[in-house]
């Protein structure tokens, strides 16, 4: 049994939140640079230039990249032989989130669903964090984190297709979601697609797909092929940076698939704006 201190988890979470909220992830930065080089549309090229300048300013002056500093989303693999000393793992993640957001001068964006009252004074600054735990063998602790903004979340959609819809049905659904979204989710975007499992599995997989490094290939050749096809089709929509009309609409398409019920083909599309703030670390 390995022991890990509650305070050590709090500090690591706090530090990673502040760093990733002010320093655009390397993969997203590289993808934006590539989009800037390749964009033909002058108005979109100007937008991409502003985004690269913004990333520079944010990193140099330790300022939030975007005023929507998001809800804190975690995927955590906990070893069965790991013991947290001095508190619970869940409390440590939430406390690290609170400190990261408050001490980084990030925005507290959680509110009550109906009154829309901001929750910072009642349950804590930008709490609760959204945490997906997975219990695994060993004594490790692996934390994946992303700040998820509202604009791109608002255009995300899930459905359950009939199995006969197949691959073509999935491609058309994804294309429809991104076409309808247009300028709203702050393109160029990263598109996470979750296929299979149950209804909620598909949604969670589409979220987790966004944590993958942009520019990497999918290990599954079938999915990799679908990703390439979708990249072309989505860029052909002509939406462009901030929807002003251009070639560079999508920085990456990431698909995760699960076995599913013989009667169902669940599909979920989760969209990530160009300000992809994600990181992963082991403790």
């Amino acid at each position: 049994m390995r022991e890990i201190k509650y305070e050590d988890i709090v500090k690591a979470v706090r530090d990673h939140i502040i760093y990733s909220g002010t320093n655009l992830s390397k993969d997203a930065l590289a993808a934006l640079n590539k989009a800037y080089e390749e964009e033909e549309s002058p108005v979109c090229k100007e937008v991409l230039k502003q985004l690269l300048e913004n990333a520079d300013i944010a990193a140099n002056e330790a300022r939030p990249l975007c005023q929507d500093t998001g809800l804190a989303v975690f995927f955590i693999k906990v070893g069965e032989d790991l013991k947290v000393v001095g508190g619970t793992l869940k409390d440590a993640i939430n406390e690290g989130t609170r400190k990261g957001y408050e001490e980084g001068y990030f925005r507290a964006s959680t509110c009550v669903w109906n009154t829309r009252a901001n929750l910072k004074d009642e349950i804590g600054y930008n709490l609760p964090a959204i945490i997906h735990f997975d219990l695994v063998a060993g004594d490790g602790l692996e934390i994946e984190y992303a700040a998820k903004g509202g604009g791109s979340e608002n255009v995300s959609r899930a459905t359950v297709l009939p199995p006969a819809a197949g691959r073509e049905g999935i491609v058309n659904f994804v294309k429809g979601v991104i076409s309808d979204a247009g300028p709203n989710p702050c393109p160029p975007i990263i598109v996470g697609v979750g296929i299979g499992g149950t209804f909620e599995n598909a949604a969670i997989s589409s979220k987790h797909a966004l944590f993958r490094t942009v520019g990497t290939t999918n290990e599954d050749p079938t999915l990799n092929d679908m990703e390439s096809e979708l990249m072309t089709k989505l860029n052909n929509l002509g939406i462009g940076a901030m929807g002003m009309g251009g070639r560079e609409t999508v920085l990456g398409v990431h698909i995760e698939a699960n076995p599913c019920h013989i009667a169902s083909l669940p599909v979920s599309v989760n969209v990530q704006c160009h300000s992809s703030r994600h990181t992963s670390f082991k403790l």
Binding site: L51, R63, S109, N118, C273
Partner: peptide, 28 residues
């Protein structure tokens, strides 16, 4: 339209800010 996700860049062009109504809304 202003560039979404360019919050650090755009803030440079804001020289002063004063809350004039509904301070209880915080960022809103």
């Amino acid at each position: 339209g202003a560039t979404g996700g360019a919050g650090a860049l755009l803030a440079r062009q804001i020289k002063s800010a004063e809350v004039i109504a509904y301070p209880e809304l915080g960022p809103e």
